Simulated scan of single mutants.
Amino acid sequence: MTDHCLRLLRQHRRLAELAAFPFNFDLDRAADGHAEPVRLASGASLEAVAGCDTGGTYFVCADGSLLYADSEGSAGTLGSSVDEALEILIGLPGWRDCLHLTPADGEAAILARVTGIEEEMREYYGIDAERAELRAALGLSDRSPVELLGMLHTALLRTEPDFLLLNAEEGCAYDLLDPHPRPPLWDSVRHEVPGDPADEPLSTWIRLAAEQGMTELARVALIRRLDEMSMDQSSLLRPGSRKELDLSPLPWLAEEFERLGDLPQAERARGLHARLQRGPAR
């Protein structure tokens, strides 16, 4: 896929206005930037290209994928290119109310949900003539809502590990935009263990992923674990204790981040370790 549609939107004001309303892909909002500084955990580039009326931002990633970050700390990929993502945004203008759906829900449930959302929209503004005009001008296919939902679902599942968005100042990760479960880490790691792989500590799979060259997969697991410890220190309680913390995972996390060359996250782990060693402020 290409950025053909983005070029057309930038060249033709009428098309840009249609994309902004009613489809909430507003090029003019890109100049405002996101609500906070952000970066990809991988270090790959991000370019803000549009925004929406709820404070969200659309970013083009280095490989051309379109990443959406909302103003409440969630993010997800919407397509492998701007063109693909715009097919979804224009074809499913209520896509944010469909994030819980999957192709497994079936055609009837998907169509019922999409129809209900669009009927509510039509009570306030038009979408049909605008959609037809924009699709024709951009050369986009007239796909069914079921097909578009499948495209959206596939795109969202690509968010991790390569497109994990971080708060650039604090280093913590954005939540996933969708609620869909992801496969456990051991599904990606080529290693046999006796018994249930879920019984193995997470550290086993993180180390194996890193050793097998799955750097971003290991990084995501490490960042998510560090975020969990930062937000909920009860996850560090020693077994059987209500107050005593086991801080040993934090130096380990710092070492693993260093192995990946991620010095900012290593420093974040060490900083949390130091704060918790000092105990609560008096």
Score class of each variant (00 low, 15 high):
residue 24 N to H: 11
residue 25 F to H: 02
residue 25 F to A: 03
residue 25 F to C: 03
residue 25 F to G: 01
residue 25 F to D: 02
residue 26 D to Y: 03
residue 26 D to T: 03
residue 27 L to C: 08
residue 27 L to V: 02
residue 28 D to H: 11
residue 28 D to I: 00
residue 28 D to Y: 04
residue 28 D to N: 10
residue 29 R to T: 04
residue 29 R to L: 15
residue 30 A to S: 09
residue 30 A to G: 05
residue 31 A to T: 09
residue 31 A to Q: 11
residue 31 A to M: 00
residue 31 A to H: 08
residue 32 D to G: 00
residue 33 G to I: 00
residue 33 G to Q: 10
residue 35 A to I: 14
residue 35 A to M: 00
residue 35 A to K: 02
residue 35 A to V: 13
residue 35 A to Q: 07
residue 36 E to T: 04
residue 36 E to H: 13
residue 37 P to H: 07
residue 37 P to R: 10
residue 37 P to T: 08
residue 38 V to Y: 08
residue 38 V to N: 08
residue 39 R to S: 15
residue 39 R to G: 10
residue 39 R to K: 15
residue 39 R to Q: 14
residue 39 R to N: 05
residue 39 R to H: 04
residue 39 R to I: 01
residue 40 L to K: 05
residue 40 L to M: 09
residue 40 L to A: 12
residue 41 A to E: 10
residue 41 A to Y: 09
residue 41 A to S: 15
residue 43 G to S: 09
residue 43 G to L: 07
residue 43 G to V: 07
residue 44 A to Q: 15
residue 44 A to P: 07
residue 44 A to R: 10
residue 45 S to N: 10
residue 46 L to F: 13
residue 47 E to K: 13
residue 47 E to Y: 11
residue 48 A to L: 03
residue 49 V to Q: 09
residue 49 V to W: 12
residue 49 V to G: 06
residue 50 A to F: 01
residue 50 A to N: 04
residue 50 A to P: 02
residue 50 A to T: 01
residue 50 A to L: 04
residue 50 A to I: 02
residue 51 G to A: 05
residue 52 C to G: 15
residue 53 D to F: 15
residue 54 T to S: 12
residue 54 T to V: 13
residue 55 G to E: 01
residue 55 G to M: 02
residue 57 T to D: 01
residue 57 T to I: 04
residue 57 T to S: 06
residue 57 T to V: 06
residue 58 Y to G: 12
residue 59 F to L: 05
residue 60 V to D: 07
residue 60 V to I: 14
residue 60 V to F: 12
residue 61 C to Y: 07
residue 61 C to N: 07
residue 61 C to H: 09
residue 61 C to R: 04
residue 61 C to K: 00
residue 62 A to S: 15
residue 63 D to V: 05
residue 63 D to W: 14
residue 63 D to E: 10
residue 63 D to A: 08
residue 63 D to N: 13
residue 63 D to R: 01
residue 64 G to M: 06
residue 64 G to T: 08
residue 64 G to W: 14
residue 65 S to G: 11
residue 65 S to D: 14
residue 65 S to M: 00
residue 66 L to C: 09
residue 66 L to V: 13
residue 66 L to Q: 04
residue 67 L to I: 12
residue 67 L to A: 08
residue 67 L to V: 14
residue 68 Y to H: 14
residue 68 Y to C: 08
residue 68 Y to A: 12
residue 68 Y to D: 13
residue 68 Y to G: 07
residue 69 A to P: 06
residue 69 A to C: 14
residue 69 A to R: 00
residue 69 A to I: 06
residue 69 A to T: 05
residue 69 A to G: 13
residue 70 D to S: 04
residue 71 S to M: 03
residue 71 S to Q: 11
residue 71 S to R: 00
